[in-house]
Design a protein around this nucleic acid. Sequence first.
RNA 1: GGCAUCGUGGCCGAGUGGCUAGGCACAGCUCUGCAAAAGCUUGUACAGCGGUUCGAAUCCGCUCGAUGCCUCCA
Length: 493
Amino acid sequence: MQLYQTQELRVHNSLSGKKEPFVPLKDGYVGMYVCGPTVYSNVHLGNCRTFMSFDMVFRYFKHLGYKVRYVRNITDAGHLENDADEGEDKIAKKAKLEQIEPMEVVQRYTVDFHNTLQKFNLLPPSIEPTATGHIIEQIEIIKEIIEKGYAYEINGSVYFDVVKFNESNDYGKLSGRKLEDMIANTRELTAQDEKKNPQDFALWKKAEPQHIMRWPSPWGDGFPGWHLECTAMSTKYLGETFDIHGGGMDLKFPHHECEIAQAEASTGKSPVRYWLHANMLTLNGKKMSKSTGNNIYPAEMISGDNDILSKPYSPAVVRFFMMQAHYTSILDLSDDALQASEKGYNRLMEAMDSLGGLKTGGTSNFDVNNWRQKCYDAMNDDFNTPVLISHLFDAVKRINLIKEGQQSITEDDKALLKSTMEAFVYDILGIENQSALNDDSNTLDGVMELLIQLRNEARANKDFATSDKIRDDLNALGIQIKDGKDGTTYSLN
RNA sequence: GGCAUCGUGGCCGAGUGGCUAGGCACAGCUCUGCAAAAGCUUGUACAGCGGUUCGAAUCCGCUCGAUGCCUCCA
């Protein structure tokens, strides 16, 4: 018996705009595709939020007992900088700027991407395919689309015929747009545009002689278009129809809309059953943007080397902060909000640390089973991590009460509470306990035990000058002394 | 300009047609030698203006504002 058989998960499907019961294509298996980064610069924090949201989704599916194949691509072929004919792809542009090979750019920023995600404790996906590794597959799809009559070749480039497609299909169903409206609002056609219609998009672009990234094709040397790689790779590894497709809100149009069109044109089937979109991260209430300086890189945040925040924040605190908001809501990052989260995070982790040492008794004042199901209910409701966290804090309160001897818990309930807390905090939310990670020295424990003992002796002798000196000086070092009912403990700040 | 999403107490952030989300901050109390930690108690929030309803912050309309997309972008 797997958990998914008893827990009824509902997800917000962008295609219908509603929460729907999640039923996978194949019982017990989930296929999930998430649009990965274009590796032409360092990942920024907004990217991280999106990938973190889907990491949490991935983790929850796994926790429920599904076998999950999670595919997240690396876009290393570059995309056009602009829509003009002489458009240059981003990666080639960066390569020229830095006087290095395009693949050097790709390598450098792929490494940065992986390092950063690892800091935030993201699990690696099951498959991480690259666009350049799937040129052949992309060419095959283009052939298929041409054959079906939804694409045309001109001057060595191939374009998707959106108007034609819209006659038999619904282009715009994901983003809630109508082709007629789009046509009505279009800016003037540039004179040299090869496209029949401004809404058409490139499947294959002819490479000009100076273009470095190029591959042979039936239409001459060129490179694949904007949206094709995701269709090629998702189809290859997950099938023509699969369960979940995720990505940032900003990809909804045109990227995801075009993916649907490409897949429906080539296979005649709707590619995705549930579209999930993660919302944006703003900084101090405004869009993150490199050009205005309203931007912060993960590394700068962790090191504290930035002009925006008052202090460094650990990746675990940042993750906790992000999990306190629902993935479909815009989240605003600010120093105040992070400070509040940091304190909440510390309180949660201290409860986690004291869980194991809790004294048990003959009765429980805490209905652990009922509480546990509330946690699942929160997650089952479209991965509602903020509500889950509110329940986790209910447990924190209980843990502290039991610790203070004001309430009691049975051995069985304690075991269930502990395993449930660990599952939700560590496995599902992916929040690491950094106090536990750093606490690798038995020496420190020994020294602290000695100091606590000396302080207590001083207090017993009413030598408060000495006891306060120990307490205050330790505090200055970032070590907090805590006097509880059952003796004194300490924690590192 | 068009489309979409959203506007919640000092800050962040859930949620629902009538029943306390939660975190942080603040105040009072308990505990303490004094503190800290922990616990308890208190906050008459739901952008504005109308409307529907026995009842709306939750539904509808309008206004204002924010964010995203409309050209690559998580």
